[in-house]
Amino acid sequence: MVEFTLWDILRNLLLAARWTVALSLIAFVAGGALGLLLVLARTLPAGAVGRWAGRCVALHVEVFQGTPLLMQLFLAYFGLALLGLEVSAWLAAALALTLHASAFLAEIWRGCIEAVPRGQWDAAASLALTRSEQLRRVIAPQALRIAIAPTVGFLVQVIKGTALASVIGFIELAKAGTMITNATFRPFAVYACVAAIYFAMCYPVSAFSRRLERRLNGAR
């Protein structure tokens, strides 16, 4: 039997961690872009279109917040197969996590926009700014400041949430940990490494957010 050194374990885990990073990035960038569209649809002025858009977004959010990510992954993988679409575990995981992130981010950002006092809209409108100018120049900069902490908090959740993609056979960090354990019979060493790698990915993200928040608040 081959002897695995700690370095072998770590190296293989790091190779798999690339997929965790890739999946997190896709979920966050694509989910963020979709979430932004959703939140914009929800801030449309209350007309017939605005009401319908609002309802659709609310439903999307309810569905993805109200079901476990695990089920969303299963449904993306097996559901699309049922529809005759042969998707890889990679594509299914990316799709499920993107939709998942879009719903949560849309809801987080909507809360941030609503946290900006009503009077800011009134003042901007009474200065003859258009709806989109009000949003871009007055509301968004204030909402952005409020949004940093919860957004980054969710990003950390997404990074950790990618571990669930292992259930549909996608080989990322957590799955690689299990496979290497089965080959080495050194679960403690392997999972300690896995945890350390997750930490090494998440910690800089939160540290960065704290710095950013301090800087923005300092600039008041």
Partner: peptide, 13 residues
């Protein structure tokens, strides 16, 4: 037509 509000509503940013 300009408007001034009780709570000032200056843009804090």
């Amino acid at each position: 037509v300009g408007m001034i509000f009780q709570s000032f509503n200056l843009f804090p940013h």
